[in-house]
Structure formats: C-alpha cells, structure tokens
Nucleic acid binder design. Structure first.
Lengths: 242, 242
DNA sequence: CCTATAAATTAACTTTTGTTAAGCAGTTTG
DNA sequence: CAAACTGCTTAACAAAAGTTAATTTATAGG
C-alpha cells in the first residue's frame, strides 16, 4: 500500500484501497512494465512531424507536400536526460516542438534557489522567450528531464521563411496564441486559486506530468516549497477525500 | 502628513518627512492640480493613433498613409468611469488599444469574490482572450476604472483585413508578443517572488498605477487579500526603509 | 550487497497570510 | 447636514507557508 502511494502520487484511503481510475492505473502500470505493451511500444504518445503538418493544413489549408521549405529548415535535436538545451546567457533564438520527453524551464534566483517557470512535454512548444521576445541573453535554463526529441528551428530563420512564404503565417500565430493561452491560464490560477487548489488541478489535468517529474519541480512551479507541497499532499490524503 | 500617506501610497518617515522623488511628487501634484499645467494639459500621456502608425512603420516599413484600410475599420470607443466594456458571457472578439484611462480585467469566483487578472492603461492592448483564443464566451469582465478612450477593432475584422493586407501581419505579431511578454513576466514574478517583493516591484515599475487604482485591486492582482497588502505596506513603513 | 546520493517526509518553530469583524476617513447621496 | 457607502486600517485568531534540520525512502554506483 505504501509503495502505491509513493509511485502513484494519489490519495490512498486508510483502508488501503486505491482511488484511481482505470486510465490512471493503466498509465502507471504501462510505465512500470513496458513489456506489457510490447517491446517497442511507447506509452507516452510521441508527437510527430505529421501532427505539425496536419496542423498547418487545418489552420491554413497548406498541403503537407507544400510545407517542405519549412521543414527543410527544421532540424531534429536529441537531448540526454539531464542535458541543458538552453543555458543562462545563450543568445540563440531557438523555437522547438517537443516530439518526446519533458523540458523544464527554470531560473536561478539571487539566493541560489531555482524557480521552475514551466514543464513542457510532447506536443507542446518551447521557446527561448528572453531572446525571441526581448532580444536579450536568456536568464532561463531549459533542461531535459528525460531523453528528449525536438523539432527545432531558429526564430530568425522562421522569419526569413515567412517573408517568402506568408502562407505559413498561421503557424506562427498558432504558436504565439498557444504560448499566450498557457501563460494566461497559469496567471489566472495564481490570482484565483490557493496552492492546494492549483495542485489538485494539476493532478486532474496533467496527471502524467506528476508521475514523471520530481515533486520539487512541481512545487516550484506552483510557487511553493517542496515541504509545503508535501504537507498539502498529506492533508489531501487524510482529510479531503476528493 | 496622514493625508500625504493616503494619497501618495508611499512610506512616510516617523518624522513626517516624505520619501518621494521629484518626479513622483510632480506626478501627484499635477494630478491633484491640473490647473498648474494649463487648462488642456493632461499629465497622463495619452497614447494616440499616431503611436500605432509609427509602430507599424517601425515594424514593417508601412507608410502611415498606407494604413488607412486598417484604421478605417477601427473605431474609437468612449467609456465612462465604472462602465463595463466586456461582460461575462460576451462573445464579441474585441481587441483594443488604450488611448486613455485604465481597464481592469477580473473574474467572479464561485464564492462571489472577484479576482483581478490585470490592470491595463494607456499605450497597452487589451483583448477578450476567452473569445479570441478559445472561441468561448468571456468568463472575464473588463471594466473602466476611469473615463477611457479606446481604439477598437474586432479580431475577426482584423483577420479579414490581414488576408488582403499581409503587410500588416507584423502588427498582429507585435500585439501577441507583447501580450505574451506581459503574461510571462507576471508568471515569473509568481514563482520567483514573495507578495511583498511583487508589491515593491509594482511600486518601482508602475508607480502611476498604484496612485490611480484602489489598493484592493492591486492586492487581488498580486494574489493576496487587501488586508494582507495593508500589512505589507505597514511593514514597509516601519521596518525596511527601502 | 552495501554504500553514497537524491528526493520526499516529518517535526519544531517562525513568519506570513486568510478570515472576520470593528473602526476610521473620505465621499456620495438624499 | 446627516446618513449611507466605500476603501483602508487594525486587531484577534486560525490556517497555511517558509525555514532548518533530522529521518526515511528510493535510486545509483561500486
């Protein structure tokens, strides 16, 4: 029972009965026992270049065969677990689509503590916002928490392509809108919810993330310390049975 | 002395000596006594249509005389103090540039409390993000805190214009980037700073705002209660003389 | 298999915030 | 002018979060 609590990061009743949905259980099992799903299967659905091409077609009606100029300029980047993708002081204007893995974006504060701004996984975009938006060296570090596969393009190169291929412009808008939507949602959560409520929401909406990432990064992203997150989880186990 | 404290929202030493810069003092005086500056002068610099045209020229090299199709579709909107610009449930996809005044964007929580997402003033954009990004009825209310002048355009109309005038596309990117930059900065402040530090920063960077807006909205935007903000300010007066 | 290391928990204590309610000052309204 | 109202402050108490440090629990390496 205790083992389950630690791995599942879920409330466990005093009786020892787990309160998990079938989907959640399957997710955990498939992670622990990949063999169950066949040798080459991968539980975490990886996002492919096809998704982006489909997206571009849906957004702008550009046929996948016509998007070669764009994807010719993109390159696939592989990162090892723990490897830094962007470091403090970098001036590159990298923009990437995560095909597989998790990237953590964080800043080192004056007192030496790290503050995690966000955790992004497959199907999401990451962008060096200091360099792209403000044209200043990055104050943030982007680091792979798992082996990561990226589809990367430099924002300057993208801008060049867009000059000759304005038909791809909807892709840039989609990227910006999606980044904006994410940020606004997080902003909203900070002014409307308590840390505990934010954690409950994360548990409900990004359950997979909680199981793949150390709690201390989750805590930091919620704006609290790991000690506080541990207490929140204890309160959730004992009292609120939701 | 007490009067000064209330109006200036600034630390007052026990001796009664005000700790304000010349600029700050002038700002307050000019607000209290507009007559000092002449009958038609306006201290808060209003942002004009010229600024937008200049911006478009800087960004894309489009001559101001060529931007008529764009500005023909924009309309000037006047709001009284306290008037709602966008209400809960609205489906319009309004996008506006604030020429004059302050707009507060807030949401009414389940318990009836209001949570302020942001306060925007002259020179900034506001946009109904629920309708524009998610195409869902607005959960937020946008309300004028002062008499407001807006330069408004519907996002759908803007998109139509952009189909025929792709040369204005940089304006949309600028707008999205700026909204994103603002959101990211606020997100960053929530994970790296305490409420007191966020208030100090607001005091340093948006001093004008603090004097034009009731504290309770500032508190809400910082993610705390008005009572807590009052205590923070008290701590700042007595202890930290910074 | 044992040890070193990192992550999470727990505890004790301090600080801060939330909550509720009372009071005060300034403004508006009848 | 008095009364109602709004916004800010203060107080008292409860709840939550920060801090530091010790302990337990995995994970990784030899």
């Amino acid at each position: 029972m205790l083992l389950c609590t630690l791995i599942l990061r879920l409330p466990v009743e005093k009786s020892g009965k787990l309160k998990v949905t079938l989907l959640q259980a399957w997710q955990v099992i498939s992670k622990l026992c990949p063999a169950l799903l066949g040798s080459n299967s991968n539980f975490y659905m990886s996002a492919s270049i096809d998704m982006l091409q489909q997206l571009l077609f849906d957004l702008a009606g550009v046929m996948p065969t016509d998007t070669q100029p764009l994807f010719d300029m993109a390159s696939r980047v592989l990162l090892e677990a723990g490897e830094a993708y962007i470091r403090t002081g970098d001036t590159s204007r990298k923009l990437a689509f995560i095909e597989q893995g998790i990237i953590r974006s964080y800043i080192v504060k004056d007192n030496g503590d790290e503050a995690t701004l966000f955790l992004r996984c497959e199907g999401q975009f990451i962008a060096s916002h200091d360099t792209i938006i403000h044209r200043q060296p990055s104050r943030f570090i982007y680091r792979a928490l798992e082996p990561v596969t990226l589809l990367q393009i430099d924002y300057d190169v993208l801008e060049d392509i867009l000059k000759n291929h304005p038909e791809y412009e909807p892709l840039r808008n989609f990227f910006l809108m999606r980044m904006l939507a994410d940020s606004l949602k997080i902003m909203e959560s900070f002014v409307t919810q308590s840390p505990e409520e934010r954690y409950r929401e994360l548990l409900a909406e990004r359950f997979d993330l909680i199981n793949r990432v150390p709690d201390k990064y989750i805590a930091s992203m919620l704006g609290i310390t790991p000690v506080s997150l541990s207490r929140i989880r204890k309160r959730m186990h004992t009292k609120g049975k939701s």
